[in-house]
């Protein structure tokens, strides 16, 4: 019976990461290092059946399975980038808790900054125009009346014998 089950297990085949992201490009991890890295990579993956929880934080069976797969891939020497690519290949960018800075995601970040920059340009150009306006159009800006050319002229005329 055991031999039969063994034969059956050998016949079984599940999709393997090697089909999609190639051979491992890192060092196989073990022990505490493996536990720590599993937690770190799991924290970067979104649990697809949860509300905003990472694979590391979710107790759901789906997340537990995904975490198990992350652990297995790390123990085989797959790098963090390879593992994230593997999950992204199946689930798309949705599965990444830190989306890549490209496409629509990049536009949502860049465009508001661009709008602020344009606002600054408008304010600065307005300020410069006000500064460059003719002196006759402006009110005296000095606090000391004796420095004002108008007052000085009036004084001169009054004091004239």
């Amino acid at each position: 019976m055991i031999a039969f089950l063994l034969v059956l297990a050998l016949q079984m085949k599940v999709p393997d990461a090697e089909q999609f992201v190639g051979k491992p490009q890192g060092t196989p991890l073990t022990g505490e290092q493996l536990n720590l890295k599993t937690q770190q990579v799991g924290a970067l993956l979104r649990c697809p059946v949860c509300q905003g929880l990472s694979v590391s934080d979710s107790p759901s069976e789906m997340a537990v399975n995904m975490k198990g797969q992350v652990r297995e891939l790390l123990s085989r020497g797959y790098t963090q980038e390879q593992i994230l690519s593997y999950f992204e290949r199946s689930y798309g960018q949705f599965v990444l808790l830190k989306p890549k800075f490209n496409g629509v995601a990049a536009a949502v970040w860049i465009l508001p900054l661009l709008a602020v920059a344009i606002g600054v340009v408008i304010v600065v150009s307005k300020a410069k125009k006000l500064e460059a306006a003719p002196a006759g159009n402006r009110q005296p800006t000095t606090d000391n009346p004796s420095d004002d050319p108008y007052i000085s002229r009036v004084r001169e005329l009054v004091e004239k014998p």
């Binding site: 079984m12 599940v14 999709p15 999609f20 697809p48 059946v49 069976e61 789906m62 399975n65 995904m66 198990g68 797969q69 999950f87 199946s90 689930y91 798309g92 599965v95």
Partner: peptide, 15 residues
């Protein structure tokens, strides 16, 4: 039977 959900994960099954 998909043991440990590996096939489902490879297909991107979300539920």
């Amino acid at each position: 039977v998909d043991q440990a959900g590996k096939t489902a994960i490879a297909y991107g099954v979300g539920g």
